[in-house]
Simulated scan of single mutants.
Amino acid sequence: MVSKPNFLSGSGQDKFSPELQLDSPDGVGVAQAIDPKGELHLRFYIPSHQEFALPATGIREVIELSPDRITPIPNASPLLLGTLNLRGRLIWVADLGQFLGEATELNTDRSEIPVIAIEDQDIIVGLGVDQICGMGWLDVQSLMPPSNVPDTMAPFLRGEWLDTENNKYLRLIDQTAILRSARWAG
C-alpha cells in the first residue's frame, strides 16, 4: 500500500530498469511498465547518498510523515528513531543508514521523513530513509555479489547492480535479514 501514489514519478528510472509511464484517466499516477523485465523494486537513498532497492513483495507500505508522528523512546538504541502507529499497530522505526553501519545520521529536522514499512510473516519494522526514488523493474538475474561493502552492511545485502556509466552501485537489501537481525537486541 502506498500513501502517496505520486512517489512513482520519482527520478528512479535509468539504466537499471525500463521506463515507467504514468497515466490515468482520473489524473492519479498509475505505473505501467514498458517491457517489464525482472521483478518490481522500490529504489531509495540513505543519508550517505548510497542507492538501495527493496523487492516490492516485502513492502507493506511507503509513507512520508512528519517527524513528530514518530515517538522517540528514551534509552533506546541510537539506530531507532522511535515508534509509529501504523493503522492501529505500534511499529519500531529505524534509521536504515545507521542500521547498516553508516556514520551519517538521518536528518529528522525537516517537514517529512520517508518511511518504508517492511514485513515478513507477522513482523513489521519501519525503515527511515533519506529519499524515495521510485519503483522500477530490476533484473535479478544480473545481480552480482556485493563488493567493497563494510562488514556491518554485508549481511543485509542480497547483491548489487553496477551502473557503469555513472560508476555507482545499486544494492539490493535483504529485508528478512534486517527483520530477523540480532542488532535489534543491542
Rank of each mutant, 00 (worst) to 15 (best):
V28Y: 13
G29N: 12
A31K: 08
P36C: 05
G38P: 04
G38K: 00
H41E: 03
Y45N: 09
I46Q: 04
P47E: 08
P47H: 05
H49W: 02
E51S: 06
E51R: 03
A53F: 01
A53L: 01
L54A: 08
T57I: 14
T57G: 12
E64T: 13
E64M: 14
L65D: 03
L65P: 01
S66N: 15
T71W: 04
P72C: 11
I73Q: 05
N75H: 15
N75R: 15
A76P: 01
P78V: 10
P78Y: 09
L80Q: 14
L81Y: 06
G82M: 11
T83A: 11
L86F: 13
G88A: 10
V93C: 04
V93M: 05
A94Y: 07
D95V: 03
L96I: 09
A103F: 01
T104W: 00
E105D: 09
L106K: 02
N107T: 02
N107S: 07
I113V: 14
V115C: 06
V115I: 15
I116M: 07
Q121I: 08
D122T: 13
V125C: 13
G126C: 11
G128R: 08
V129T: 05
I132D: 06
W137F: 06
D139K: 03
D139C: 03
L143I: 10
M144K: 15
P146Y: 01
P146M: 00
V149P: 01
P150F: 04
T152I: 07
T152C: 06
M153C: 10
L157V: 03
R158I: 02
G159Q: 01
E160F: 01
W161P: 00
L162Y: 03
L162V: 13
T164D: 11
T164Y: 09
